[in-house]
Simulated scan of single mutants.
Amino acid sequence: MTRISQALENKNAFIGFAVAGYPDFEKSAKYIVDMAEAGADLIEIGIAFSDPSADGPTIMNADQEVLENGSTTADVFNLVAEVRKHTDVPLVFLTYTNPVFKYGYEKFLSKMQSLDIQGVIMPDMPMEEQDEFLELVHQYGRDFIQLVTLQSGNRLPKIVERASGFIYVVSSLGITGSRSKLSNEADEIVTKIKRLTDLPVAVGFGITTYDQAKQFESADAIIVGSALVKIIEDHPEDATSYLTDFIKNMKGARHATN
């Protein structure tokens, strides 16, 4: 069992998300630590990219601001090094293929290993093109988190077979961002996945409210991204108490389902 699986094994876990370097690198590191201290069981760190195809306007705007400030992948690793001085919460990167390829697959994974970053999510890497990267992921003892969508259909068993760490179920069609209503189809997919694997299953995309956090009872975890980035956007200088209150509220919702 990997550290990710251990972190999510209590069946009511909360996964938070932050854009590395937003609103700046010093505060970004602090807010990631704050999320961990508020009870986040795992934190995704997004690496800003110019064409984040899976992300909605809130995260895209944060990415754009970070890139305009000249952020590099090396800066992101420096941020993680700072975070690691204060917390050992499991971390995963959410990024895209291009930045990792440019940095060098093996160099990237080696750096992840040295900084105790447990896994990586790359939503734009097609399953048919993953073999080389997967081999290196296993070589460096990292996890490659696979995404399952409402349209995965017959591909589901093959996606699950390639996954490690946890499986990320996209709760709705489209891009990240708040939604007033979420489909129950994701719950059905979670049930199908659990017939195929013992890996934890997390549901994300659009989860914003207490009731939405309670909605996916079958999932081992929920993932919240845009709502947390929006809190930082609204309170760039003093987001700590707002992040803490939000995460504790969402964790309360998860405990209420189990």
Results as ranks from 00 to 15, higher is better:
residue 8 L to A: 14
residue 12 N to I: 14
residue 19 V to Q: 12
residue 24 D to K: 08
residue 25 F to L: 04
residue 26 E to W: 02
residue 27 K to E: 00
residue 29 A to C: 03
residue 30 K to H: 07
residue 35 M to Y: 07
residue 35 M to P: 01
residue 40 A to I: 14
residue 51 D to I: 12
residue 52 P to S: 14
residue 53 S to Q: 10
residue 53 S to L: 15
residue 67 L to T: 06
residue 71 S to A: 15
residue 73 T to D: 06
residue 73 T to C: 15
residue 80 V to R: 10
residue 83 V to G: 06
residue 85 K to F: 02
residue 88 D to A: 15
residue 90 P to T: 11
residue 92 V to E: 01
residue 93 F to I: 03
residue 97 T to C: 15
residue 98 N to F: 08
residue 101 F to Q: 12
residue 112 M to H: 06
residue 113 Q to V: 04
residue 113 Q to P: 01
residue 122 M to F: 09
residue 128 E to Q: 10
residue 128 E to I: 09
residue 129 E to H: 03
residue 137 V to A: 07
residue 138 H to L: 07
residue 150 L to R: 00
residue 156 L to S: 03
residue 158 K to N: 02
residue 167 I to E: 01
residue 168 Y to G: 00
residue 178 S to R: 13
residue 179 R to C: 07
residue 180 S to Q: 12
residue 181 K to F: 07
residue 185 E to G: 02
residue 186 A to N: 05
residue 186 A to C: 13
residue 188 E to P: 00
residue 194 K to P: 06
residue 194 K to E: 03
residue 198 D to C: 11
residue 204 G to M: 00
residue 205 F to W: 09
residue 208 T to S: 15
residue 213 A to N: 12
residue 216 F to C: 10
residue 217 E to T: 07
residue 219 A to E: 02
residue 219 A to Y: 00
residue 238 D to Q: 11
residue 244 T to L: 03
residue 247 I to C: 03
